[in-house]
Design a protein around this nucleic acid. Structure first.
Length: 297
DNA sequence: CACCATGTTCCTTG
DNA sequence: CCAAGGAACATGGT
């Protein structure tokens, strides 16, 4: 999935397609995806309603439905988990294997597909108690980042993935942002300097924005285009537009660092793979602070 | 068979 | 309270 950039690209794609479209029928093929609601509840809430907008908050999608006299506002929350996808298909195309929910509109069918079924498509607001600031929003500043992180002794990479600290950063872009900021993923948050937070802040925004730019440049028509956008890691296919080819360290263990040529390394933090370059991200076992004037590579 | 995978939540242990 | 580690969820690719 779908970390922030992929969800953002998806939302931009979906919003104009769904706006003002009316829900004809809803079919739930995997009950887990809509829990704690039932298929009947989803049908009762959605059939006849008209889409107003699709927006993003962190990694979540929000489908808002039009409000009218006597018809209260309604929001459907979508979360893609690890392998979730959302797309429109014609009625003629048979339903793929792992469809969780199919929402029939007047002229097309909205499919929520999720192989591993970690995703969600259900009524109501975010289940998460607290979601941190949007990293691309104006309220996100170096000071906000520092304030949110500096009190923690956690490794910075682990903390970056905490959705209550910052919304939308996952395993891929955590590694990418730290590489760009030249900070070791092992650095404890409380050991980062203001200068490091400044670099990290900038790197987060660059890495996310560039990924959105790449994703937005991908034509989004058939299933192959969806694969280029959502298929990562060792499953990724080496197509000219595959976004994963643009990663600088993620899933590049043993490959030469794009900066210094040293082999990219992999380690496990909080149960997840972290990719980094010991040459460019000094202090892998220290504090990650660079002396002034010192070049990492 | 083993290991890995874009995420979240829950549980246990220190 | 915090942090870390593991397991669970369910399926597929290598």
């Amino acid at each position: 999935m779908p970390e922030l950039p992929e969800v953002e690209v998806l939302v931009r794609q979906l919003d104009p397609c769904l706006r003002d479209r009316r829900v004809q029928s809803v079919a739930v093929r995997r009950a887990k995806i809509v829990r704690p609601y039932s298929e009947a509840e989803l049908q009762a809430a959605l059939v006849g309603r008209i889409f107003q907008s699709v927006t993003r908050r962190g990694k979540c999608l929000r489908f808002q439905f039009r409000e009218s006299p006597g018809v209260p506002p309604l929001t459907v929350l979508g979360h893609l988990g690890m392998t979730g996808r959302i797309y429109l298909q014609s009625f003629q195309v048979p339903l793929p294997k792992h469809v969780g929910v199919a929402v029939d509109l007047d002229s097309a069918r909205l499919i929520f597909e999720d192989t591993r079924q970690f995703g969600r498509f259900c009524l109501g607001e975010l289940s998460q108690v607290s979601v941190g600031p949007e990293p691309l929003g104006t309220e996100f500043t170096p000071a906000v980042l520092q304030e949110a992180m500096s009190g923690s002794r956690q490794p910075v990479k682990v903390r970056l993935m905490d959705q209550s600290v910052i919304a939308g950063i996952g395993n891929i872009y955590a590694s990418e942002a730290l590489f760009r900021a030249r900070i070791s993923p092992r650095t404890r948050c409380c050991d980062l300097t203001s200068e490091s937070f400044q670099r990290l802040w900038q790197s987060i925004r660059e890495v996310l924005n560039e990924a959105i730019q790449r994703g937005s440049s991908i034509p989004f028509n058939g299933p192959e285009d969806r694969e280029r956008l959502f298929h990562y890691g060792r499953n990724a296919r080496a197509t000219a537009t595959n976004v994963s080819l643009a990663f600088q360290v993620y899933d590049r263990e043993h490959l030469p660092c794009v900066n210094c040529g040293r082999a990219v390394e992999r380690m496990v933090q909080a149960g997840r793979s972290t990719f980094f370059c010991t040459g460019c991200q000094p202090g892998a076992s220290g504090n990650g602070i660079q002396k002034p004037g010192e070049t990492a590579c």
